[in-house]
Amino acid sequence: MSVVPAGGWLNRVRGAMAKTRASIAAPVNKVLGRGVFDESTWDELEEVLISADMGLPAALEIIEHLRRESLRHPPADSAELKTMLQAAIAAELVPAQTLSDDGNSSLTVILLVGVNGTGKTTTAGKLARRFADAGGTVIIAAADTFRAAAIEQVAVWAARTGAYLVKHTRGGDSAAVAYDAAAAATARGADYLIIDTAGRLQTKTPLMEELKKVKGVIERELPEARLLSWLVMDATTGQNGVAQASAFADRIGLDGLILTKLDGTAKGGIVVAVARATGLPVVMLGTGETETDLVDFDSDDFAAALLD
């Protein structure tokens, strides 16, 4: 089933990011506005990219590319150089598959994972809102059995969005929650099962093993379902984001990234570093406090919004 109204989310990224201060437009304009392109132009642009958390390797690569391009096709003006920069940034990103690139499965399971405090539960709630608005039957599994009151938080979201809630008690086995959720999804003929898991730092081996178990249960119990494992990452994340994505991808396997809290001053450039290191696509962006502030990701829009 398709939940993405055709063209409906277009430009939402740009709008969402323009609303905030999450852009590197001002410093880029300042550098380019001088109208003189020399060594210090490149150095300063490199700094701007670093200040957006793209990381030094990606920044160097983008600038090097830009430098070579501008030798081959000297840009007429700063506007053209800016367009070239925009294209170079977008080229670093991996095109996302949207949810509408549906297979034949009737049930989509979304496993939300990530380090502590990135907004997994809020994202679960926003996803539930979105699927429910599109007319789907949604189940949320409260598989964060570790954090105090995490289950209550999910329960509030379930009530708000009309999703069914599967929960155990705190301290319970998250794989057992997943098992019950899988059974519930089958019994109710659900369209979407969203699994909210406990935040865990990627270096904690036993916790990563636990997550693997949760995923294993879903794969075993719902072999026909489309399972998407998404890493939820805070837009303020620095270069540790690369380690996060690599570790979660290695240990449990990932299908994509959701970048949250893009409504601050953080630019979320970490997704460029992550894409470069892991090849993971960004799927959606969390752009605000309201239930509908979750939009599909588009590389070109994102790069444009960064520079707008």
Partner: peptide, 12 residues
Amino acid sequence: ADAMIGQDAVNQ
């Protein structure tokens, strides 16, 4: 403050 924040730490 979260130790994992990047360049935005100083703005915040």
